[in-house]
Amino acid sequence: TEIRININGVTIHVRDASEELKKLIEHLLRLGADEKEIREVLHRWEK
């Protein structure tokens, strides 16, 4: 699944996002995570 996240005008594009990762990101956004925090989570997730 491919997702695009727009945070304050900055688009983060994620290829091959699992449903689990998608739910995690949606949850973090609801909690008010910023772009830097989302990128950090994505970076750690890929490892």
Score class of each variant (00 low, 15 high):
I12A: 02
E40C: 14
D34E: 08
E40V: 07
A33N: 03
L28V: 04
L29S: 02
A17N: 04
I3K: 02
E2C: 14
V41R: 05
I7G: 03
K22Q: 11
L24S: 05
I25G: 00
L42N: 00
L24M: 12
K22V: 12
L31N: 06
V10Y: 02
D34S: 13
K23T: 13
R15W: 14
K23A: 12
E35Y: 14
S18W: 03
L21P: 00
K36A: 11
N6H: 14
R44W: 11
I5H: 02
R39F: 07
V14P: 02
L21S: 00
G32Q: 04
G32R: 08
R15I: 10
S18Y: 03
T1N: 10
R30A: 06
K23I: 11
N8S: 10
K47H: 15
G32K: 08
T11D: 05
E19L: 13
E26N: 14
K36R: 09
I3L: 13
T11Q: 10
D34N: 12
I25V: 09
R15H: 14
D16M: 09
L42P: 00
L28F: 08
A17Y: 07
V10P: 02
I5A: 02
L31C: 04
R4D: 07
L29A: 04
L29E: 02
H27Q: 12
V10E: 07
G32W: 03
D34G: 11
T11Y: 11
L28K: 06
E37N: 06
E35C: 06
G32T: 02
K47F: 14
A17H: 05
E40M: 15
S18K: 05
W45F: 07
G9V: 02
L29P: 00
N8C: 04
R15Y: 14
R44N: 09
E19D: 13
V10C: 06
D16R: 13
S18T: 10
N8Q: 07
R39E: 05
I38H: 00
V14L: 08
I12Q: 01
N6W: 03
E35R: 02
K22F: 15
H13M: 12
H27I: 10
K23M: 13
K36F: 12
E35D: 09
I3P: 02
H43V: 09
T11S: 12
A17C: 05
I25S: 00
K36P: 05
D16T: 08
A33R: 12
L29N: 01
G9D: 08
E37Y: 12
I25L: 12
D16P: 07
A17W: 08
E26H: 15
E20A: 11
H43E: 09
K23R: 11
I12G: 01
A33W: 06
E35S: 08
H27M: 14
T1R: 10
L29G: 01
V41D: 00
V41K: 03
H13L: 13
E20W: 13
E19K: 08
R4K: 11
T11C: 07
E20M: 05
L29H: 02
E35W: 14
E19M: 11
E26P: 00
L42C: 01
S18N: 09
I3G: 03
I12T: 02
L24W: 10
G9W: 01
E20P: 06
E26L: 15
I5Q: 01
E46S: 15
E40Y: 14
N8D: 08
